[in-house]
Simulated assay, not measured.
Amino acid sequence: MTVELNHTIVPARDPQASAQFLAEILGLSVDPPVAHFTPVTLANQVSLDYDQLDDFEPHHYAFMVSEQEFDAALARIQHGGITHYGDPACHEIGQIYHSKHAKGRRGTYFHDPDGHLMEILTPGGS
């Protein structure tokens, strides 16, 4: 058997709201609760299991999406008035980046309601 990531815990002050926020941006659904977790399952079957915590450090989560999914997610971000950035330091407001290392790769960063830095990026070429 190969090693695969199965799930990761995403701390959130309001797990349902945070899971719904990300699911809407990515065009996904929030799964039914599993114990006290609110999961969002990605196409590769890895789940982000939102868990209620009041105090935590923000994390970075990156999502590989197709060109079409990127355009749709970016439109939802813009339509929702969510600030997005072309760099992980969040200085390039309203921008997307174009990778110098992976030809054709585009991406952008945005914060979720709990301050986690979310990134969507396309595969690009080599």
Rank of each mutant, 00 (worst) to 15 (best):
Leu5Met: 14
Asn6Lys: 10
His7Arg: 03
Thr8Met: 13
Ile9Cys: 06
Val10Leu: 00
Pro11Leu: 07
Pro11Ala: 05
Ala12Leu: 06
Ala12Val: 00
Arg13Ile: 04
Asp14Glu: 15
Pro15Cys: 08
Ala17Ile: 06
Ala17Cys: 05
Phe21Gln: 05
Ala23Lys: 06
Glu24Ala: 14
Glu24Met: 10
Ile25Pro: 09
Ile25Ser: 11
Leu26Glu: 08
Gly27Leu: 10
Ser29Trp: 02
Val30Arg: 11
Asp31His: 04
Pro33Ala: 15
Ala35His: 11
Ala35Met: 14
His36Ser: 13
Phe37Asp: 02
Pro39Gly: 05
Val40Gly: 02
Val40Gln: 00
Val40Leu: 11
Thr41Ile: 12
Ala43Val: 08
Ala43Ile: 02
Ala43Phe: 04
Asn44Ala: 05
Gln45Val: 08
Val46Leu: 13
Ser47Trp: 02
Asp49Tyr: 03
Asp49Ala: 07
Tyr50Phe: 15
Asp51Asn: 11
Asp51Thr: 10
Leu53Val: 06
Asp55Thr: 09
Asp55Ala: 07
Phe56Tyr: 11
Glu57Met: 05
Glu57Cys: 03
Pro58His: 02
His59Cys: 06
His59Tyr: 10
His59Ile: 10
Ala62Glu: 02
Glu67Asn: 14
Glu67Leu: 02
Glu69Pro: 08
Asp71Phe: 00
Asp71Pro: 01
Asp71Asn: 14
Ala73Pro: 08
Ala73Thr: 03
Ala73Asp: 08
Leu74Val: 07
Ala75Gly: 05
Arg76Val: 11
Arg76Cys: 15
Arg76Lys: 13
Ile77Arg: 00
His79Pro: 07
His79Gln: 15
Gly80Asn: 08
His84Asp: 06
Tyr85Ile: 04
Asp87Pro: 08
Ala89Ile: 03
Cys90Lys: 07
His91Val: 01
Glu92His: 12
Gln95Ser: 07
Ile96His: 05
Tyr97Trp: 11
His98Val: 12
His98Glu: 13
Ser99His: 07
Ser99Ala: 13
Lys100Pro: 03
His101Asp: 12
Thr108Val: 14
Pro113Asp: 09
His116Met: 05
His116Pro: 10
Leu117Thr: 05
Glu119Cys: 09
Gly124Ala: 13
Ser126Ala: 15
